[in-house]
Structures are given as C-alpha cells and as structure tokens.
Computed example of a mutant assay.
Amino acid sequence: MSTNRDVTIAVLGTGLIGAPVARNLHKQGFTVHAWNRTAAKAQALVADGVKAFGSLAEAVRGADVIVTVLNDGPSVEAAMQAAAPALAKGSVWVQLSTVGIEGTDTLATLAKQHGLVFYDAPVQGTRQPAELAQLIILASGPVEQRSVVQPVFDAIGKRTVWVTEQIGASSRLKLALNNWAFALTHGLAESLAIAKGLGVDPALVVDVVTGGPMDSGYFQAKAAAILAENYAASFSITNAVKDARLVVDAADQASVQVDAARAGLRRFERVLRAGHGDKDMAASYLA
C-alpha cells in the first residue's frame, strides 16, 4: 500500500502561501521539491526538510504532482513552459494560483499539450490559514485522479469543496469569493475612517460590532491591524489590485453590473499609487 512518502511533489512558488504549503506537505510525509524565482525563498525551506532547486526542470523532474502557487497567470504559464522538458506525461498538475477565467483556460490548454492531468484548485485563505494548514481548497477536475490529489489538499487545508469536473468552475467561484473579501475590507476601512473623520474613536466601531450579527473573525483581524497600524501583508495591495481587476473583467464578460467592485478596484489602485503595494490589503484604510 502506497503512502505519502512514495509521492514526490514539486511546489513552484514559495511566497506567502507557497512556503507554508511546501512545509505542510513535508510535515505530512510527502517528498517536497521547491522552486522560486528568488532562489533564497526556496532555499529557506531546506531547514524544514524541503529540497530546494535552482532550476524548474530540476524541481519537477521525478515529481508525481506539480503544485503552482505563483502570482498570476503569465507567471504560472512561464514557469510550466520552462519546466516542460522535464515533465512526465500523466503527472498531476494542481493549480492553486488565482489567475482568472482566461488564465485558467490557457493553463488547462498547456496541461493538455504536455499530457498532464490538470486540477483548477484556487484556495480561500491568506498567509495565516496557509501556515496552519487551514486553507479551503476550491477544486475542479477529473474524478479519476481525485484519490491522488485529495491527500495533497488534506495536507494543506481544512476543507476541500469539489465544485465540478469542469475546469475553470473553481476559478469562477474564487472570483466571487474574492469580491466578498474585498467588499468586507473596504467597508471596514471606510467605516473606521468615517469615525475618525467625524471625531469619534474608531475603536468604538469595533466595540459596537463585537459579538453582534455583523461580527466575524475577519472583521476582528483586519480591524486590529488597522487600529494598530500594522500592515504586515497576509494578502498584499499589489495582489489585491491584480485580483480585483480579474473580478471586474470577469463581470464585464458576464454582463454583470458590479458598481462596488469597480469602486473597490479604484480604491486599491489609489493605495498602490501611493506606494503601499507591499502592505496588507487592510491598507485600504490609507486611501
């Protein structure tokens, strides 16, 4: 009977999400290869038992599963094209990055060209859930290989939502969920800013909401960060701009009117232009 130790996983991209994903896979007994464009980030995982590689071909060689956790669609596509000579036909490709509808279609086509089994599996959650293996995986893909990918999902997340066999459905769902996260972020940031602007202690907004129907763990975490002026990134403004654009573009294609989403994108863009791209998206408050 095979075990996780018999499975080699190549994690391409070891940033805020990719690094804890690689660590948690190793903790569950998988052999983990890691690659990152900034080599030092992959090398930092060696102390945790992960094998770091300087080239994409070396990282994917011998891997049963390739997991991509890169910034955007073009980055994922470029990495997999560079890795192509070492990819084994029949390997499983688990695509965790948020790349939008067109990006997912492009990557699924690439997978087919190289004989890979493709799973569209963006995650719900940021740095802290990733570190705690508490991500929610939104998975779409063929039924036949789900027994291969489910242990991977179980190692990095608390729940897997199998959306459908249709590739791209998960990425569509992720855009809807991201829109909700952005709306919550902007709503909180503006409410605290309004209180301060009107001469009221913003902490009183949090006090009134706490324990009531509008309260949530997300509300508390982002409010605490804003009040403490602590914008260490769990999900950066730069990434928020990228994902908010994907939401608006997808809505345009579907002829869905998204006034709040457009306004939220403009707000994130304003914060980005002000030089806060590396800060957490709670820095919407700084707009």
Rank of each mutant, 00 (worst) to 15 (best):
T3E: 11
I9Q: 02
G18Q: 06
L25N: 02
H26P: 06
H26G: 10
V32Q: 07
V32R: 04
H33E: 08
A34H: 01
A39Q: 11
A42I: 01
V46F: 03
D48F: 05
V50P: 06
K51H: 10
G54Y: 02
A57R: 13
V60Y: 01
R61D: 15
A63N: 09
D64I: 12
V67L: 12
V69E: 12
P74H: 05
V76I: 09
P85A: 11
A88H: 10
V92P: 01
V92T: 11
T98R: 00
T104C: 15
D105Q: 15
A111V: 06
G115T: 03
G115I: 00
F118G: 06
Q124P: 00
A130L: 01
E131F: 10
L132F: 12
P151L: 00
V152P: 04
T160P: 01
Q166W: 13
A169M: 10
S171L: 03
S171E: 06
L184I: 13
L188R: 07
L198K: 13
G199D: 01
D201L: 03
S216H: 05
S216E: 08
S216I: 03
Y218W: 14
L227R: 00
N230G: 04
I237A: 11
I237L: 13
N239D: 14
A244R: 02
S255F: 14
V258H: 07
R266I: 03
R270H: 12
D278L: 08
K279Y: 08
L286K: 02
